[in-house]
Amino acid sequence: YKELDVHLRRMESGFGFRILGGDEPGQPILIGAVIAMGSADRDGRLHPGDELVYVDGIPVAGKTHRYVIDLMHHAARNGQVNLTVRRK
């Protein structure tokens, strides 16, 4: 696995990616679609299928989808987010 730290600034449309997973206990949280011309797309480092490991330094492995969405909403209010993702 390769770990990447990604800092994104929120645009009008948000951070520019969707979150998948976390529906079953222990299921990984994954990056879903990366939205064209969004913040994540312009940054270029997030890829669909990347596993989300940390959101603003908070571990999200094994957490629920709702928990991660709530963290992302909090980050959106701050206008930026630091993510750590893991890729095979």
Results as ranks from 00 to 15, higher is better:
38 G>N: 05
57 G>Q: 10
49 G>R: 04
61 A>W: 11
82 N>A: 10
31 I>W: 02
71 L>S: 02
80 Q>T: 12
32 G>L: 03
50 D>H: 00
41 D>M: 06
73 H>Q: 13
45 R>L: 05
2 K>W: 09
45 R>W: 04
46 L>D: 01
31 I>V: 12
31 I>Q: 01
63 K>H: 11
18 R>N: 15
52 L>P: 01
67 Y>W: 09
43 D>G: 05
64 T>H: 10
70 D>E: 12
35 I>W: 07
71 L>Y: 08
37 M>N: 15
35 I>K: 13
60 V>I: 12
54 Y>E: 13
74 H>C: 14
54 Y>A: 14
12 E>R: 09
75 A>E: 04
81 V>A: 03
78 N>A: 11
77 R>P: 04
32 G>S: 13
14 G>D: 10
24 E>W: 09
85 V>L: 08
16 G>S: 01
26 G>V: 02
17 F>K: 00
57 G>C: 06
45 R>I: 07
22 G>T: 09
5 D>N: 15
80 Q>H: 14
8 L>A: 03
63 K>F: 06
59 P>M: 14
34 V>I: 14
51 E>R: 05
74 H>I: 15
46 L>T: 00
44 G>I: 03
16 G>R: 01
45 R>A: 07
53 V>M: 13
26 G>D: 09
68 V>F: 05
7 H>M: 13
7 H>V: 11
7 H>I: 08
27 Q>M: 10
47 H>K: 15
23 D>V: 10
4 L>N: 04
63 K>M: 10
48 P>L: 09
40 A>C: 05
87 R>L: 04
39 S>L: 02
62 G>F: 05
78 N>L: 11
2 K>E: 06
29 I>W: 08
30 L>Y: 15
30 L>M: 12
57 G>V: 00
18 R>M: 06
86 R>C: 06
64 T>I: 07
35 I>E: 15
7 H>D: 11
13 S>K: 14
75 A>V: 05
81 V>Y: 02
49 G>L: 05
44 G>Y: 04
3 E>N: 12
54 Y>D: 09
44 G>H: 05
55 V>A: 01
65 H>C: 10
40 A>G: 05
17 F>P: 02
38 G>S: 09
52 L>D: 01
63 K>C: 11
39 S>I: 04
58 I>P: 00
58 I>S: 10
39 S>Y: 03
8 L>E: 02
1 Y>I: 08
79 G>I: 01
47 H>D: 06
85 V>G: 01
55 V>H: 00
24 E>R: 12
82 N>E: 10
78 N>P: 03
18 R>S: 15
58 I>C: 12
9 R>E: 12
65 H>G: 09
52 L>F: 03
37 M>A: 07
17 F>R: 00
53 V>F: 07
77 R>T: 12
71 L>K: 08
79 G>V: 02
71 L>W: 02
33 A>M: 06
88 K>S: 10
14 G>F: 02
15 F>R: 02
53 V>D: 04
40 A>V: 04
15 F>G: 01
62 G>W: 04
47 H>Q: 13
68 V>G: 00
23 D>E: 14
22 G>W: 04
2 K>Y: 09
38 G>L: 02
35 I>G: 09
45 R>C: 06
19 I>W: 03
28 P>C: 04
57 G>F: 05
3 E>Y: 15
48 P>Q: 13
21 G>P: 08
80 Q>P: 03
51 E>Y: 03
12 E>P: 12
7 H>P: 07
71 L>Q: 07
66 R>M: 11
42 R>A: 09
73 H>R: 14
28 P>I: 03
15 F>K: 03
80 Q>R: 10
2 K>P: 00
18 R>V: 07
16 G>E: 02
65 H>F: 12
82 N>T: 11
30 L>T: 15
59 P>R: 14
38 G>Q: 06
40 A>E: 04
48 P>Y: 08
17 F>T: 00
75 A>I: 04
53 V>C: 11
64 T>A: 08
50 D>K: 01
35 I>V: 13
53 V>E: 06
57 G>S: 10
32 G>V: 05
51 E>H: 07
79 G>T: 04
32 G>W: 04
2 K>S: 08
26 G>R: 06
46 L>F: 02
84 T>G: 08
82 N>D: 14
82 N>S: 12
36 A>F: 06
35 I>C: 13
31 I>G: 02
22 G>A: 08
13 S>C: 09
60 V>E: 02
47 H>P: 01
76 A>N: 14
1 Y>D: 06
38 G>W: 01
79 G>R: 06
60 V>W: 01
43 D>C: 05
24 E>N: 11
36 A>C: 08
68 V>D: 02
21 G>R: 06
84 T>D: 03
2 K>L: 09
39 S>V: 06
68 V>M: 05
15 F>M: 02
18 R>C: 08
27 Q>G: 10
44 G>E: 05
72 M>F: 10
7 H>S: 14
17 F>M: 07
66 R>I: 08
31 I>N: 00
1 Y>T: 07
4 L>I: 15
3 E>H: 10
46 L>Q: 00
69 I>A: 14
26 G>Q: 07
50 D>A: 01
75 A>Q: 04
20 L>C: 15
9 R>G: 07
66 R>V: 08
8 L>Y: 02
31 I>M: 03
48 P>G: 06
53 V>P: 01
1 Y>G: 05
83 L>A: 00
32 G>F: 01
83 L>Y: 02
70 D>Y: 08
14 G>T: 04
10 R>L: 07
10 R>P: 13
55 V>W: 03
49 G>T: 03
77 R>Q: 14
43 D>T: 05
80 Q>W: 12
65 H>N: 15
58 I>Q: 13
72 M>D: 02
80 Q>K: 12
2 K>R: 07
6 V>T: 00
29 I>D: 02
61 A>E: 14
61 A>C: 11
18 R>Q: 14
65 H>S: 13
48 P>M: 10
22 G>P: 12
21 G>L: 07
57 G>D: 10
4 L>Q: 05
4 L>V: 09
44 G>K: 07
70 D>C: 08
62 G>V: 00
55 V>E: 01
4 L>W: 07
21 G>W: 06
45 R>Q: 09
6 V>G: 00
70 D>W: 07
27 Q>I: 09
67 Y>P: 01
39 S>G: 05
1 Y>P: 02
10 R>Y: 15
74 H>A: 14
48 P>K: 12
68 V>P: 00
50 D>V: 00
76 A>V: 11
53 V>N: 04
61 A>H: 10
52 L>C: 02
68 V>R: 00
42 R>F: 07
56 D>Q: 05
64 T>R: 09
52 L>R: 01
68 V>T: 07
14 G>P: 00
3 E>P: 00
37 M>G: 15
19 I>D: 01
64 T>N: 11
12 E>H: 09
28 P>N: 05
20 L>S: 15
74 H>Q: 15
34 V>E: 05
29 I>F: 13
25 P>E: 10
25 P>G: 07
76 A>I: 09
7 H>E: 15
28 P>Y: 02
56 D>F: 01
81 V>P: 00
71 L>P: 00
65 H>W: 09
14 G>I: 03
42 R>K: 13
17 F>C: 04
81 V>H: 00
42 R>L: 14
23 D>A: 12
30 L>S: 12
44 G>Q: 06
22 G>N: 09
66 R>S: 14
32 G>R: 06
70 D>M: 10
28 P>Q: 07
13 S>N: 15
40 A>Y: 03
9 R>L: 11
65 H>Y: 14
